[in-house]
Design a binder for these strands. Structure first.
Lengths: 373, 373
DNA sequence: TATTCTCGGGAAAGCCCTTTCCAGAATAAT
DNA sequence: ATTATTCTGGAAAGGGCTTTCCCGAGAATA
């Protein structure tokens, strides 16, 4: 194979020469299907291909045909299990469709997503998928929208996982509804004094989850003290730090802490443990996402399960289906999963004014289950 | 922008036409640097570029120049934090070098890696990185080597993270030495009866870690009962399952269980917990990798820390440096991290024949530290 | 037998760029 | 003033592929 004297890669012309056929014929054999080629000539071409170790140059093919097989994926942080799970779903579907997935981590700066879309436009990528919460930086968002617009206008497909703010196909995790259901479930367990570890101030996902949680409490007429909503990085250390602030605020401690992501919840758990506060004995703790890798932390974490792989799969499918040029939105509900980190609060400890919601009976809550004992 | 009547993407010829210059001049302006162009003409070209929203077709450029900016990465399972951490390191370095990272998950079948390398060859990728343990399927390995050979022979660079068996640049996590050091440390803590959750039978990383562990024990003249080495999938469920087998084998339980990966260890921990076996009270448990996401499991897991991000960074740098065409090997040591999951075994419980190694004093062990209190 | 169809093959135009080569102008050196 | 040296710009030849268009030969139809 690859017997060209100059050590260079064999070209289709080499194949054609060696087989004694024209370039056109060689091409037709290699892309078999486009048009028929006589058996004997085809055999000669295949022989030449094998002998030269020829592989078609996909870049050149893409230039010639004007269509690419690349799909670009930008996510905030590939090492975060939330994103890597979504990426896994995306890759699976894309691989099945014989597409090439290009990936970047946009941790760096706000503009990274826009730059990546521009790069994908230059690469003539078939599609681009943006994964992760939007921020409330509207200027950056406008720039991103413009870039996505240019991308789609030149024939590319675009989708995002997160908020529906970019004018493209969107997979929409129901952060607000999930957090609301969680709040109701926690209130139903008897918890009354809550704190929220809310993620970065500018990130919409954190805002949605916080607001949804507040709404859920409101249904039970349980207030959420704004002073007990502390912001922090959406990471283990962010959760640790935010929990520290709650502890530093002094007595009385909340009954229950809601961290807007499991990762933060784990950081909070570590902080509580180091302070000698027992979970769930002294304080209940809940997260969001149901990160698979964290299903075995102790105590098992109450959370809102999102089908992360599916988010990626859906996004990939949206972007690969060639129908429906107009932006579609696919909401994906979360499911409250009650585990041991939020045991029912013993009635003795409850405050007198606790009462179930009047307007909306608890029966409207999404089903809550306790998997894995 | 993009004002071409047919809605198609603007081409460099369009730019040249609109600016009233030749294609060559337009090209020179766009790739500024190759050759000087008069100020006025350059301005006209830039104006046309802006008006048309022109973006160079990178595929065509790659065909013309014969060099690509793509680097392919194949890893077993992107949703596994071990791999996603490595991927993060890779992406960071590649992004800094303005390279496009294409990624795939090769969970599916043994041949997936080979196919991906072939695909990268077809794409004329600049480099390819294979991340993950080799298996002992030598036939598949030979095929993979042949494909890598074809890839490098046609000018691509290749590297792998794992075993040095592919004849390409290799980042070599010191599985054996790490496991050996871990075994010594555990023996020094007083443990004598060990079990190993060894991962899939065919995966070399699991084999190396198991063998290294056995060696370490041998230094303390502690035997490892082959019946207590059970194989299982390199996953949470695999660890759970394997631990079940150990428990099913009946009394006496081992003092200490070594799972060849943290993920398996967590599964084992869940199994022990559900059986009412206390860790570390009744049994000690250790893992390998020191997955960041699992640093906060309870009890904190003794493990061998690998600098996962760095593995990816090193691999990326190997593949991007243009010197040294011959395959290089970069060994990366692990560091034993003793945490609470393996408390010292109380002397009362120790068996009489316990004794420190005669030939190699424990002082030769790598430094063991307990971070995070 | 004459006429129309396939059918298999090649020449060549195209895809969108880069880069070499060449020509003319402007500047420098003698 | 003449030659030699830059500079600038354009024409055109690539790069490696697909695909249209055309042509001759054999098959099918009348």
């Amino acid at each position: 194979m690859d017997v060209r004297p100059d050590g260079q890669r064999a070209t289709l012309q080499d194949v054609a020469d060696r087989a004694g056929v024209s370039l056109a014929t060689a091409s037709r054999v290699v892309n078999d299907g486009s048009r028929k080629v006589g058996k004997d000539l085809a055999d000669r071409v295949n022989k030449a291909v094998a002998e030269l170790g020829y592989t078609a140059n996909l870049q050149a093919r893409a230039v010639a045909t004007g269509q690419s097989t690349m799909i670009g994926v930008a996510l905030r942080d590939i090492s975060d299990p939330y994103f890597s799970s979504i990426a896994a779903g995306l890759i699976e579907v894309a691989d099945a469709g014989k597409l090439l997935v290009c990936m970047t981590s946009t941790v760096a700066h706000e503009d990274a997503e826009r730059e990546y879309v521009a790069l994908m436009r230059a690469q003539r990528a078939r599609a681009v998928v943006l994964v992760g919460s939007r921020s409330d930086n509207t200027a950056a968002r406008a720039a991103l929208r413009a870039e996505l617009d240019a991308f789609t206008r030149s024939g590319g497909r675009a989708a995002c996982v997160g908020q529906n703010l970019l004018g493209v196909d969107t997979v929409l995790p129901e952060n607000r509804a999930g957090a609301e259901a969680l709040a109701r479930a926690l209130a139903a367990l008897g918890h009354r004094r809550f704190a929220v570890l809310a993620g970065p101030r500018s990130l919409l996902t954190g805002q949605e989850r916080t607001n949804g949680f507040r709404d859920g409490l409101r249904a039970w007429s349980v207030p959420l003290d704004p002073a007990r909503v502390v912001h922090g990085d959406l990471s283990r250390d962010g959760g640790y730090q935010a929990m520290s602030e709650i502890l530093a605020a002094g007595e009385p401690l909340p009954d229950c802490v809601f961290a807007v992501s499991d990762i933060m919840a784990v950081g909070a758990l570590a902080r509580l443990r180091s302070a000698g506060v027992d979970v769930p004995g002294d304080i209940a703790l809940a997260g969001f996402d149901d990160i698979p890798t964290l299903r075995d932390v102790y105590p098992p974490l109450t959370t809102v399960r999102l089908p992360l792989r599916r988010l990626g799969e859906i996004a990939a499918r949206l972007v690969l289906s060639d129908d429906a040029p107009q932006p579609r939105v696919v909401p994906v509900p979360g499911e409250v999963v009650l585990r041991d980190s939020t045991r029912p609060r013993p009635p003795a400890a409850r405050e007198p004014e606790a009462r179930p919601p009047a307007t909306q009976p608890p029966a409207t809550q999404p089903p809550a289950r306790r998997p894995r004992g």
